[in-house]
Design a protein around this nucleic acid. Structure first.
Lengths: 239, 239
DNA sequence: TCCGTTGATTGATATGCGTCAAATTACTGA
DNA sequence: TCAGTAATTTGACGCATATCAATCAACGGA
């Protein structure tokens, strides 16, 4: 067997592509192919370092990688965070269907090729078929976006305070999105669960809580947290 | 404003629920409500510590949380890893539409209520409408599953070797899934990107590479990695 | 071929986190 | 209210990783 993705030039077979289900419907006789195939922009080529989509920009297309590779990055307060690596068969930007903005920047690591599909075209095709589709897709895209945020921006922090603050900031955002006061959090889980989630020990977690309390950034009383300085939290969350 | 999720008893409004788009279609006059609403199992109640769905078990239902909270966990070689926390409005188990098995175990952190929808019912409703739907949902569910695996099982490792091995093991799996030899990896990204991704410094990353090479677990030559002992990698990946 | 530049590895030291242990605080039920 | 237990915090110490710095290898252009 050959090594993985032996060269950027070698394309994967369409059968291995995440878009295959749309590009080449298997069920014989169904007319999806006629519907989708003409809309696909094939063989868009990117040079190493070139940006395909940019975080927070308006999302018009989503893509499937056919050869090469990409890194995903997100901006933080103190620099850039690499949030993933994508290979042939993976999708880029499809989660943007939820907010209409890309969740991350995608940069080609080598000469790479992608197929593109316009969100608008997809919406049209789906809209013509049944309104339920868009709802379901939105539901999935929303979940994917939240999952992405919850994980990729919390975990890679190097310091314990960074992890905890990123975690608290995520809870803050999620509370605000639900229309609650994001500065007053109730933590229904115990310290052991938080520590396990963050890849820390209970003791270290507890020490960080104590430190943030001592520095008047948080008010901690068991499962109830009051955020006193949200900017400080957000700043520490990038460490 | 009140604190977040002030008590487990307090339900969120249906408007805040991720399932709202299915439960209560906004567009007046469309008949989705008639289709979906009778299928929803409402107000299923769970006690603290009760398990709603279990990792790898056959997935019949997916759920939306209406009150309370859950933790997601996954089994690893040396114990249980907490992989997320979910609150009212979040979905549980919908990503299982891809493999037919739940990606994680969901345990109630407090007395909680959920609404459930049978995958089968959803498939039927959608199947009657258009075959394109299942394709799109599969595409999203597949991506969500891969994203979940790539992130939640790599990042919370405490040791540097654990992070790197979890990363390599993920690349290994992704290569095998594409029909390549997963023991020979080409890393198109540079060390700085990997280090940033894993929340390590370049130097530490390099030392771990050297150590694994010295211990004959890897063969490292710049961007080409040969995995000599995959079991050792998998074992270290749980540290 | 050689040099200049970038990327990767190795080294020395300080700091932060994990570990083991104890003390304190919160919770539960009688 | 109180006791008994679990959960959380605090303390002391060793080790792993970050930091700062130097060396080495890889690559591209003249």
């Amino acid at each position: 067997m050959s090594p993985v993705y032996p060269s950027a030039q070698r394309k994967i077979a369409c059968e291995s592509c995440a878009l295959y289900e749309l590009c080449e419907p298997v069920a014989a006789g169904d007319r999806l192919l006629d519907l989708i195939e003409p809309q696909i922009r094939k063989d868009i080529t990117l040079q190493p370092g070139e940006t395909l989509v940019e975080e927070d920009l308006h999302a018009n297309f989503f893509y499937a990688i056919t050869s090469g590779s990409f890194k995903l990055t997100n901006r933080t307060l103190n620099g850039t965070q690499v949030t993933g690596f994508l290979f042939p068969g993976d999708l880029i930007g499809h989660e943007a269907q939820h907010r209409g903005q890309y969740a991350a920047t995608a940069v080609a690591l080598e000469t790479s090729r992608v197929c593109g599909l316009a969100m608008e075209d997809l919406r049209h095709m789906l809209g013509n078929v049944h309104p339920l589709y868009q709802r379901l897709i939105n539901l999935h895209a929303r979940h994917a976006y939240l999952q992405f945020r919850q994980t990729r921006l919390i975990m890679p922090r190097t310091s314990a305070a960074g992890k905890l603050c990123a975690f608290l900031f995520d809870l803050h955002l999620r509370a605000e999105e639900r229309g609650f006061d994001g500065s007053r959090l109730r933590l229904p889980m115990n310290r052991a669960d938080i520590a396990n989630f963050l890849g820390l020990t209970q003791e270290t977690l507890s020490r960080v809580f104590s430190r943030l309390k001592r520095e008047r950034i948080l008010d901690v009383s068991a499962k109830h947290i009051q955020i006193l300085q949200i900017e400080a939290i957000q700043k520490l969350a990038s460490d």
